[in-house]
Amino acid sequence: MLISHFQHGPVSAYPRDYLDGAHQELHRHREAQLLYAVRGTMRVVTAQGAWVLPPTRAVWIPPLVEHEIFMAGDVHMRSLFIAPELSPPSLQQCCVLAVTPLLRELILRAVQGREHAENPLIQQLMLEEVARLENLPLHIPMPRDRRLQAICQALLQMPDHANTLEDWAQQVGASSRTLARLFQQELQMSFNAWRQQLRLMEALPRLIAGESVQQVATALGYGSARAFSAMFCRLLGNHPREYLGALNQFKALGPIT
């Protein structure tokens, strides 16, 4: 499904709210999209991979890229749609970006009405701020091979699935050796590394919802809270409690619109 958004200038801002478990089916936009939620967590899935978005993070979706979105928790989505010719040259692929306090306030102001949305200064500042955002490693790559796709899609729906590669081999009709080779060839990581990264992505909405580090580590199959925290820090640069502390400071910037 192709969706085009009426432009109030180079940037259009749209607010939408979703309940926990909601799903936006596969679609694409003529414009580039900066997909951001001031509340709740989203998982964005394309043919190339999946991206997990806690608050303070946004995903950049280039024009005409098909994607679907899964909501975890009540989600307050605030999207920017940007004319294709104004997309920053550095953003040619989907990626997760760290939203700055300034961009957050600009987005919230832009969705308050046409007077703000059509303000040239606000639009220009948003474009400049988007171009400067830090790219973050919150990406789960997806394979091309149909057998690996079946495995990865099943794990996206159930990240704590306990099947080993040998178990999956019986289900998809290939030897475990073949599957292991394909994971390395197509994704440059092992099956266990891919599943571990997926589980770490799944940990974000659980932590944000208030589960303890130990509860999340146990639920997602880690041997200890320390092992889970080490993996979390390696990917996001902070231990879970530090990350949540920074997130709470970000939320305290002001009311959500």
Rank of each mutant, 00 (worst) to 15 (best):
E105N: 13
L155I: 02
P159T: 10
M231Y: 08
A150Q: 15
T257R: 12
E118M: 10
L127E: 06
I3F: 11
M201L: 14
E115V: 11
H27M: 08
M126H: 01
A246E: 15
V65T: 14
D145T: 07
G40V: 01
Q24E: 13
L244G: 06
L155Q: 07
L138G: 02
L165E: 06
Q171K: 11
Q170W: 09
P10V: 09
R195Q: 15
R146D: 11
Q171G: 03
L138C: 05
M158W: 10
H139V: 12
P63G: 03
I82D: 02
R234L: 11
L53H: 02
L200T: 01
A252C: 05
P89I: 02
V96T: 15
A154W: 04
S4L: 09
P89T: 05
L127I: 08
P15L: 07
G73D: 09
P54W: 02
A72S: 12
Q249H: 07
P141W: 02
P63W: 04
A225T: 00
D20S: 12
L165S: 08
S175N: 09
L198P: 05
P54F: 04
A154F: 05
R206S: 10
V65E: 12
M126E: 06
V45E: 14
A117E: 15
E242G: 08
R177P: 00
Q171N: 03
L102Q: 14
L121G: 03
G173H: 01
D74G: 12
S224F: 09
Q92I: 04
Q214S: 15
Y243C: 01
L187M: 06
V38N: 11
R181T: 08
L125Y: 04
S190L: 07
E186P: 12
P55G: 06
L133E: 06
S224H: 09
A219Q: 12
M158F: 07
V111H: 00
E242R: 08
S176K: 09
V111T: 10
L26Q: 11
D145K: 00
A98P: 02
A227M: 07
T257D: 09
Q149W: 01
A22Q: 05
R146M: 10
P255V: 07
G245N: 13
V99R: 00
P63C: 05
